[in-house]
Design a protein around this nucleic acid. Structure first.
Length: 590
RNA sequence: CGGGCGGUGGCGCAGUUUGGUAGCGCACCAGACUGGGGGUCUGGGGGUCGCGGGUUCAAGUCCCGCCCGCCCGACCA
């Protein structure tokens, strides 16, 4: 590649649209360009990186025996009707009509088509296990695309699906994918965490996310500072402190006028002259939500009890109730149930009112609370779980906080932001049932296949790598994904440096290295150096000033090391550095 | 969907308050100088000022309507 003919234009200023470093740099370095909201073009250098990421993924997928296929992005409505996703997916699904008015969609993922493909091709248990994958453009009409290629409405994804005839097989396929993902992200040079994505209630290892820690990321996860427990914020489980077996005084109802919120209540309690003090953490807040099971139209109320100093995390709640829908209840929903007094709801009456009541595990059996008395302006103190009320069950609903305790070891949990790189998930038989994916078992009877679903955001991975590795002067690609091995820069006047560099470029290519040759005559040395740092190719070779002494300079972008190398052995030495075996003899560092 | 900000050459922005020949920097083209950290000078090309309507002798600027984008939130395998 020669800079004089390469389609690349670096920008000195940050484009106004970009906020994140990866977004700014990918634009400034001329790797990608925005075409519309959440829609990007890849220019030659960007595409080179994208393809290298793809190749690594492809290699590792193939190494676990997965076979590559390519399914259409455009899918007839009927197929998504059968899985229910035409209705369930909502506004995030791109829908279109053909000239006859028949509905189509652009695939957001491909469970349906893979299931159908296997159903069409396989009919015996002997055809399994089977893993298939594709690397293909996906479409999701995100409400708010952001951060460039990190979260587009059109993006490149590797999705794979495993098919097994029994649960052990699924476990093995899942494991193989998980291991392959670890190799992939390591080879991509990414720092990543494996994080539980679904609560323990659904089964331990059924779903895990690979997250690249990054402050600019949009996913929140929690990691223990002491052990290796880590979880997505909505799947986290918290350690609970069991309450001691003390005898609580009997519950008493007191007047607390004008205290519809926790803060007004705490203030009022302080003014009532008790011989003990109450904080928000001593109150039991009962939040009313409504739920709707899938495929039904009617909402029913659910009350969730959490300590008063905590907020309810609707995402976390929703993740655990899935596939049932959850939404905050509105005034009218409350009024529909006689006896529910807004601001003064207590659990004592809920069973009698026929309203389902769940508490966060932090509200332990035997713990004592200040809570609503179900009458306007009145609260009850010393209300004890197990004595004064019995919830219908527990659900982790509380918003996790930095410093909460780890379920596994009791260590401090830390909250961090990250980029979701991939997801491995034991899907089970949902789609196999929906599409009748049955095969003949060893006993001659039909057997329903069980599936796993595994995704990696390929274009997103490019942005994540940029985000994690860039420094203040530009991109800094790991050698495994860099668009070239060597960036050769010529500086100086006259033809000689150019001729020398030309010859060196040829030698390097001879050795199998991919060379980006900055053969531009106009720009000054400073411009070329700045560009080389912006573009981020790992090894920069400078043919210029040193030529008079018969040397060229080799700079390593990652470490910042600068070494002068004799022209005669330049190509050999450069090849060694690229291969990661820099020779020591005769090196002049500076 | 709610809140905030914005739309002026390819990119980054000023000009709108107070209506009067569309400007600056980067990039681009030509020439000269310079030649190891985004260098200097001279000369050039490139703009339906988001769209539609209105007021006015005259609208980037004032009025009305609409569209689009960015950021935060809601939402999101």
């Amino acid at each position: 590649m020669r800079m004089t003919s390469l389609l690349v234009q670096t920008l000195r200023d940050d484009p106004a649209e970009a906020e994140l470093v990866s977004h700014k740099l990918l634009l400034r370095a001329g790797y990608v360009r925005r075409v519309g909201p959440g829609v990007y073009s890849w220019l030659p250098l960007g595409l080179a990186v994208l393809r290298r990421v793809e190749d690594i993924i492809r290699e590792e997928m193939t190494s676990i025996g997965a076979q590559e296929v390519l399914l259409p992005a455009m899918i007839p409505r009927e197929i998504f009707e059968r899985s229910g996703r035409w209705a369930d997916y909502g506004d995030a699904l791109f829908r279109l009509k053909d000239r006859r008015g028949v509905d189509y969609l652009l695939g957001p993922t491909h469970e349906e088509l893979f299931t159908l493909m296997v159903k069409g091709e396989c009919s015996s248990y002997k055809d399994f296990p089977l893993s298939l994958f594709q690397i293909q453009t996906k479409f999701r009409d995100e409400a708010r695309p952001r951060a460039g290629v990190l979260r587009g409405r059109e993006f490149l994804m590797k999705d794979s699906y495993s098919f097994d005839v029994d649960d052990d097989g699924l476990e093995r396929s899942y494991r193989a994918h998980r291991d392959a993902y670890e190799r992939i992200f390591r080879r991509l040079g990414l720092d990543y965490r494996i994080v539980s994505a679904v609560s323990g209630a659904m089964g331990g290892s059924a779903s895990e996310e690979f997250i690249a820690p990054a402050d600019g990321g949009e996913d929140t996860f929690v990691a223990c500072s002491n052990c290796d427990y880590a979880a997505n914020a909505e799947a986290v489980e918290l350690a609970v402190v069991m309450s001691s077996d003390v005898d609580h005084p009997p519950s008493v109802v007191i007047d607390t006028p004008d205290t519809p919120t926790i803060s007004t209540l705490v203030e009022r309690l302080a003014s009532l002259g008790f011989d003990r003090t109450f904080s928000a953490a001593d109150t039991l807040k009962n939040v009313v939500v409504k739920t709707r099971p899938p495929g039904t139209d009617s909402w029913s109320l659910l009350v969730v009890g959490v300590p008063g100093d905590r907020e309810v995390d609707m995402k976390r709640l929703g993740a655990q109730l899935e596939p049932t829908e959850v939404a905050p209840a509105e005034g009218a929903d409350l009024e529909a149930v006689r006896g529910l007094v807004r601001g003064y709801i207590g659990p004592q009456l809920l069973a009698a009112l026929g309203v389902r009541y769940l508490v966060d595990p932090l509200v332990t059996e035997g713990s004592s609370w200040v809570t609503g008395a179900n009458e306007p302006g009145r609260h009850a103190i010393d209300v004890v779980r197990g004595r004064d009320f019995r919830p219908d069950g527990e659900i982790g609903a509380v918003e996790v906080r930095d410093g909460d305790r780890c379920v596994r070891c009791g260590g401090l949990l830390r909250i961090a932001r990250g980029i979701e790189l991939g997801h491995v998930f034991q899907l089970g038989r949902k789609y196999a049932r929906a599409f009748g994916l049955d095969v003949t078992g060893p006993d001659g009877r039909p057997l329903t296949v069980t599936m796993g679903s595994y995704g990696i955001g390929v274009s997103r991975a490019v942005a994540a790598i940029a985000e994690q590795t860039a420094d203040s002067s530009g991109l800094r690609w790991p050698p495994s994904v860099a668009p070239a091995d060597v960036h050769l820069v010529v500086t100086g006047k006259g033809d000689e440096p150019y001729e020398r560099a030309e010859a060196l470029a040829a030698q390097l290519q001879e050795l199998g290295l991919r060379v980006l040759f900055d053969d531009r005559v106009g720009p000054s040395a400073g411009v070329k150096f700045a560009d080389s740092e912006l573009l981020g190719i790992p090894v920069v070779v400078i043919a210029g000033r040193g030529l008079a002494q018969g040397t060229i300079e080799v700079r390593e972008r990652w470490s910042g090391t600068r070494t002068d190398v004799a022209l005669g052995e330049a190509s050999r030495r450069i090849a060694e550095i690229v291969a990661g075996r820099p020779a020591v003899s005769g090196a002049v560092s500076g």
